[in-house]
Amino acid sequence: MTLTRKHIGRFGIAFLAAVAIYFLHGGMQAALWEPAFVTGWILLGGMLVLTLLNTRKKLPFLPLAKVRNWVKLHVYLGWFVVGTFLIHLDFNVPNGWIETTMAVLFVIVALSGVLGAFLSKSLPPRLTRRGEEVIFERIPIFMTQLREAADDLAVYSVEQTTSTSIADFYAERLRDWFTRPRDYFEHIMELGGRRFALKQEFDSMERYLNDTEKEVLGELRALAEKKSDLDYHYALQKTLKGWLFIHIPATYGLLALAVVHVILVHAFAGMSL
């Protein structure tokens, strides 16, 4: 992820637009107008346009601009809306329950958005670099396949070698690990500790095996590595989907409150629309 002149330029436009709002706000305030109504509507309008990204995604059959351009708009309009939000709040922490809840939700939406943008840029290349490309929904299927293959291999090893060392090693150290996705944080943080530990366990195990057993263990090691790769993809792909579980629900909560807020401020400020 490199910042190009294009990125900076677009961010600059968003920033300048926010500065314009700042002056609009200050100018109105200086003329004793209540700028919160204007910045509020701009803010709400901005948020609605941001939310329209979702609507656009639901209408793939209409020749509305490409989603990639919507996303660009989303990102930079997002920054603009963050600026407008701060101006709307006059750089203060709000007091009321509804307002505080809204502000908290906004911060959640904004931060999760920034986090999402970061994840969307940083995780895909990592997915490219490690393991086989798999469809997230199929990971349980592949995981089961790997576990069954490992189970079979353990049984096969007993048949072939008349020794239970590999089967025992598998049952004690690996079977449970094979059953479901593991090492989420390890993979997300790219720590690599588990991989190293696995390698060491296999290496030290190998020391006590004959050639036939070594071959079987080699196959088991391959399965384990595959499983680790699958875990890696599971962790990263889950994260890529996960941040939206914060971003989107919080957005709708925020919009619901925004409607209440708009009604209240207009009704109680004696300021007609």
């Binding site: 007091n95 009321g96 307002e99 809840t101 579980f245 989107i248 629900p249 919080a250 709708y252 619901a256």
Partner: peptide
């Protein structure tokens, strides 16, 4: 989850608005 969040937000508002704390909830500070 989105629907739950909206339902909780709106529901909570309605419950609180109807109860004793109504005005405190709607008060902007």
């Amino acid at each position: 989850l989105s629907r739950y969040v909206v339902a909780v937000v709106v529901g909570l508002l309605l419950v609180l608005a109807g109860g004793m704390t109504g005005e405190a909830v709607f008060s902007p500070g």
